[in-house]
């Protein structure tokens, strides 16, 4: 298959490492070669967490500037920060719920205007899918299921050759029973939101 380079960005605790891992697992189930890259350690103490999934026959585990086919942002200002991963053909999927960093509280920075940010992204890439992922996660009954919403949005956007069932199977295999129902619901909400968008 054609190589697809997918970049996930978020903030420590939002669960984007799990999302990229599940996508990698789903590729394995579907027989698609894939390599996932993560960074652990110091970056996780409330800092920016980036991960990537490269599907297809490319072997490099990471994605260079301008080379993402899909950028998935779990937090809008982080989506904006990672925009240099994109080119004019990139599809961007972003959560629009802000999680301002502490530097804003102590006056070391200004949080960007969300609407302007979305316009700026929309003007520069192939398409933008923007959704309130946290709202959907809460609606699904588990605020921590944002990563499932975002995975759902990725699959719903149809930009990767993986269907909903394979992802749901992967989620079912790896999720604790207590969270399974809400996680699958969150995933479905993501799929639906992305189709509308």
């Amino acid at each position: 298959m054609e190589t697809k380079r997918i970049v996930f960005v978020g903030v420590g605790g939002q669960g984007n490492l799990l999302a990229s891992r599940l996508l990698g697992e789903a590729c394995l189930s579907a027989g698609i070669p894939a390599v996932v890259s993560e960074i652990h350690g110091m970056a996780q103490r409330g800092g920016i967490v980036e991960s990537a999934v490269v599907m297809g026959y490319a072997t490099s585990p990471i994605v260079s500037k301008g080379e993402a086919d899909i950028l998935i942002g779990f937090e809008p200002s982080e989506t904006l920060r990672a925009l240099n991963k994109c080119n004019k053909d990139t599809v961007v999927i972003t959560n629009i719920r802000p999680l301002p960093p502490f530097t804003v509280a102590i006056g070391q920075g200004v949080y960007p205007d969300i609407d302007k940010s979305l316009d700026l992204i929309r003007d520069n890439v192939r398409s933008l899918i923007a959704l309130d992922g946290d709202e959907l996660a809460e609606k699904a009954g588990n605020p921590l299921s944002l990563n499932m919403v975002m995975l759902g949005a990725l699959v719903g956007s149809k930009v990767i050759p993986l269907d909903e069932d394979i992802l749901k199977e992967t989620i079912s295999k790896t999720t604790k029973q207590t969270f399974l129902e809400s996680n699958l619901k969150a995933f479905d909400f993501g799929v639906a939101a992305s189709r509308v968008g």
């Binding site: 409330g46 920060r81 960093p101 920075g109 960007p112 700026l120």
Partner: peptide, 12 residues
């Protein structure tokens, strides 16, 4: 893109 606020890792 405007200057974005930094997000350094922080003590929990």
């Amino acid at each position: 893109i405007p200057d974005l606020p930094g997000r350094p890792p922080n003590l929990c």
